[in-house]
Design a protein around this nucleic acid. Structure first.
Length: 244
DNA sequence: GCGACAG
DNA sequence: ATCTTGTCGC
């Protein structure tokens, strides 16, 4: 299986989209060191693609036994939200679940799935936080740095920070602040539903990230990218194997 | 010291 | 994340 230019760590895409190699940590102490070391390399400003042609959604599903997982990436046409490419990777969790170190659990499988894409997406929408993280380096930041792609984090529940309730209408938002700094935005994507937590992953500003999330939620609370990826990884998990 | 804690 | 029934609402 040879391919032209998939999204993969260490590819030769060249700046400004070149990523950095992914280093799997052996333990919690090392994982913490990795985050502390990489946090300064996150690009919090962007500008990020104002009108991306393609947007990717990433998600992971776990088997009840907890010993198997399926990572999925779906690439959508940003204008029509139609799925134009997708890939999966079935494997084992690469790290125990520790709040704040969540990325190390799913990254290897997600990166493999990304490598299997035929279309290189212009933006990554991750199921988890970006800088709205204890060390300002959540999954979306790590994926952004490793792939070199603009990335945003969309969490369903908060990990850090506090806010004062946004209004009940779609589009209403409030700053998510932690330790005096704005680390994300609490965004109501549909009238009357629970808000989602949007934060910068890499190479895009917070306002741009919010704008993209709204464009991806014409009908449901969660971005279409997340929904299509979620269905794909569940399907892959149920179907069983991954031949590679 | 006791909770809280992305998925 | 995953396990779970019914139920309220469009």
């Amino acid at each position: 299986m040879t391919r032209a230019d998939p999204v993969c760590p260490g590819n030769r895409a060249g700046p400004p989209t070149a990523g950095i190699p992914y280093r799997p940590p052996a333990d919690v102490a090392e994982a913490l060191r990795v985050q502390e070391e990489l946090r300064s390399r996150v690009d919090l400003l962007g500008p990020g693609p104002s009108a991306p042609a393609t947007v990717a959604g990433l998600d992971v599903a776990y088997a009840e036994s907890g010993d198997r997982l399926a990572a999925a990436v779906t690439v959508l046409d940003a204008a029509t939200l139609a799925v134009v490419d997708e890939a999966v990777c079935v494997g084992r969790p690469a790290f125990p679940y520790v709040p704040g170190l969540f990325a190390f659990r799913e990254m290897p499988a997600l990166l493999t799935a990304l490598e299997r894409l035929t279309v290189r997406p212009e933006l990554l929408v991750c199921d988890g936080h970006g800088v709205a993280h204890p060390r300002r380096f959540g999954l979306a930041c790590h994926l952004g740095l490793v792939t070199g792609l603009p990335a945003i984090g969309v969490g369903k529940t908060p990990l850090v920070g506090s806010w004062t309730g946004p209004g009940q209408r779609r589009g209403d938002r409030a700053d998510l602040r932690d330790g005096g700094e704005v680390v994300g935005r609490v965004l109501r994507t549909r009238d009357g539903v629970r808000p989602v937590f949007v934060s910068v992953g890499h190479r895009i500003g917070l306002d741009g990230a919010v704008e993209r999330v709204l464009a991806l939620t014409p009908r449901y609370r969660l971005p279409e990218t997340t929904r299509t990826a979620d269905r794909l990884c569940r399907r892959a998990l149920a179907a069983g194997g991954d031949r590679s």
